[in-house]
């Protein structure tokens, strides 16, 4: 028994070492940098001034806190709306042929589509020089494309939210379709025979049954959209600016001192996401224990 276990541990050690070195080594080095450790420019002293600078210095505080607020808003709104759209979509068409076709379509087309492509697509369609604006101007709904509401590169992050909804609703949809498929209709039929009307069946049967899956998918989506860079970089504005974009700009800064701030900001983003992931594991574990 003990020998067996030792064997397993030993055989797992080489890959584990690589993972630990590359992954945690990288993070650890990044963490050191965020503490001001930069041998390249002769800085060896460790302190939290980069963190302080990012969050509280006159120069960055406003950008950071407005960025954090935008980050939270965009991630919450897009995750929530994507989940809601997907839920109603899945419920509406789950029993139809369209549902299965759409599922296949999303599997084969939307899921592998990079976020970058979706973002560019958003610009094509929703920007003031985009398809919709021109179409609206053409048919006389607005006098010129410039009157089209600012949906892309707007300060409320609508364009970013739209892009995330587009991508993430598909992800939710596929998860929900498979959950609904495996549940079948028996619970709903039973509830109906016990006197539950359509709304009550949704509220007291479907929702609680899909909630665990919907919730864990939401946390994944939220964490992803919170830390992702490319969509806000393409569809965002200079101020307020989402945190990953802000971090990236620190790295683009030729001043090597800004490295520490960039790292500090990245670590802050990582921490928030990590807290979410831990919360997620805790939730799923709690669920497994309950079952």
């Amino acid at each position: 028994m003990g020998g067996e276990r030792l064997k397993i541990v030993l055989s797992l050690t080489p890959p584990l070492l690589i993972i630990i070195t590359l992954f945690f080594g990288g993070i650890f080095y990044g963490f050191l940098q965020s503490l001001g450790y930069q041998p390249a420019i002769g800085k060896y002293e460790l302190n939290f001034s980069a963190y302080y600078n990012v969050m509280f210095s006159e120069r960055y505080a406003k950008l950071f806190w407005s960025g954090l607020a935008l980050n939270l808003w965009v991630s919450f709104a897009s995750t929530f709306l994507a989940a809601v759209f997907a839920l109603f979509g899945a419920l509406a068409i789950r029993k139809t042929f369209v549902g299965k076709t759409l599922c296949n379509f999303i599997y084969s087309l939307n899921l592998p589509m990079p976020h970058l492509v979706v973002a560019v697509g958003m610009i094509f369609v929703f920007s003031q020089s985009g398809l919709l604006a021109r179409l609206a101007a053409q048919i006389g709904m607005i006098s010129s494309p410039g009157d089209f509401p600012v949906l892309v590169r707007d300060k409320y992050g609508f364009g970013i939210i739209l892009a995330y909804i587009w991508k993430e609703a598909a992800f939710f949809f596929i998860i929900l379709m498979s959950v609904l498929q495996s549940l079948g209709e028996n619970f709903e039929e039973l509830a109906q025979s016990l006197g539950a009307n359509r709304w009550q069946r949704f509220r007291y049967v479907i929702l609680p049954l899909v909630m665990p899956n919907l919730f864990s998918a939401s946390i994944i989506v939220f964490a992803f959209s919170f830390g992702a860079y490319e969509v806000p970089a393409l569809l965002g504005v200079i101020y307020p600016q989402m945190l990953p974009v802000m971090a990236f700009e620190f790295f683009l800064n030729p001043d090597l001192n800004a490295r520490s701030e960039g790292m500090a900001l990245s670590i802050i983003i990582a921490l928030i996401v990590m807290i979410l992931v831990v919360f997620y594991f805790w939730l799923t574990q709690a669920k497994i224990r309950k079952d």
Partner: peptide, 16 residues
Amino acid sequence: TEKRGVVMVFQNYLLF
């Protein structure tokens, strides 16, 4: 169905 007052117990119980 929900107004018939006819209640069906399914084969596999289906407790929520």
